[in-house]
């Protein structure tokens, strides 16, 4: 197959930068959640976690360098998970 072994090589430096970014975000979420923010705490923690997850997906899991079809599929899956959570909550929020 024509695609075998044809790959984008990610330099070591990128990996290190990404890791540093992730650790900074982790530290940030630990720091922010230790402050009393009330209901905002969950939101902030989840936003930061989503940011970290996106970085892992884009860089470590190579979505940035791969065919766009993978990104579309991942987006579709995330959409599905969010949708079923939202629809399930339609029951609990209004019960």
């Amino acid at each position: 197959m024509e695609n075998n072994g044809k790959h984008h090589i990610v330099p070591y430096k990128t990996h290190i930068t990404v890791l540093l970014g992730l650790i900074v975000l982790t530290a940030l979420s630990v720091a922010v959640t230790s402050i009393e923010l009330g209901p905002l705490t969950v939101t902030v923690a989840l936003v930061l976690a989503s940011a970290k997850a996106l970085i892992v997906l884009i860089y470590f899991m190579h979505l940035k360098f791969d065919n766009i079809i993978y990104s579309i599929m991942v987006a579709f899956i995330i959409f599905s998970i969010v949708s079923i959570i939202v629809i399930t909550f339609l029951d609990y929020l209004f019960r």
């Binding site: 949708s83 079923i84 339609l90 929020l93 209004f94 019960r95």
Partner: peptide, 21 residues
């Protein structure tokens, strides 16, 4: 079809909003 599962549960005591949806 992935989002219609609740129609098996119309008499289970779900909320009205969920029922209509």
């Amino acid at each position: 079809g992935y989002f219609v599962w609740g129609h098996h549960m119309f008499t289970s005591g779900m909320s009205g909003v969920a029922l209509y949806t």
